[in-house]
Amino acid sequence: MKTKNKFEYVPVVLQWVLNIALIVLALILVIFLGKETIYIFGFIKEGGDLNKLDLLEGILIYFLYFEFIALIIKYFEAKHHFPLRYFIYIGITAIIRLIIIDHESPVDTLIYAGAILVLVFTLFLANTRHLKRDN
């Protein structure tokens, strides 16, 4: 007879804790996505008391929330696996937001653009047949 190890249930319990934490995080992100939607439509409806740069920043934050929620959905669909592609999409969007917000230094902007180029190349590699694990 096989004896049961007293630690064999630890990964199962930790997986449940992770799943519950991700569900709570997804709910929080949905709330913030809703607030960002109200912010964006309030800006458009009222004629905007903010400048266009603030609107663009709000739209990019909206996409970041959307991408994080999509990442959590994909995690559960892929049986507890985070696809690398989604992290790269989030990174590209975050750097674009950073360029829009902080574009005072041309050297910094060039470095950010180079980082986007590296991420796009990484995305190309991640989507090759040999490295692609999810459908």
Rank of each mutant, 00 (worst) to 15 (best):
L64T: 15
I69G: 05
G58N: 11
V24K: 02
V24G: 05
K2R: 10
L14R: 02
G114M: 13
K74C: 00
L22S: 09
I40T: 04
D134A: 09
K4Y: 09
L64Q: 14
L33F: 14
E36L: 05
I92L: 03
N51K: 09
V120D: 00
E57R: 03
I38R: 11
H130R: 14
N19D: 15
E104D: 14
Y39S: 12
F87Q: 02
L56Y: 04
E77T: 08
G48D: 07
I116C: 06
V10E: 03
F7I: 06
F124L: 04
L29S: 04
D108L: 13
F82K: 01
F66C: 10
I101P: 02
V13K: 07
G91S: 13
F87K: 01
W16C: 02
K45I: 13
I111R: 11
K35L: 15
L18A: 10
I31N: 06
K4V: 09
K79L: 03
I88F: 04
G58L: 01
I28R: 03
T109W: 00
I40K: 05
N19R: 11
I31R: 08
I95Y: 06
I23Y: 12
I20V: 15
F82C: 02
H130F: 12
Y112V: 00
I40E: 07
F32S: 05
F124V: 10
F63C: 12
I88R: 02
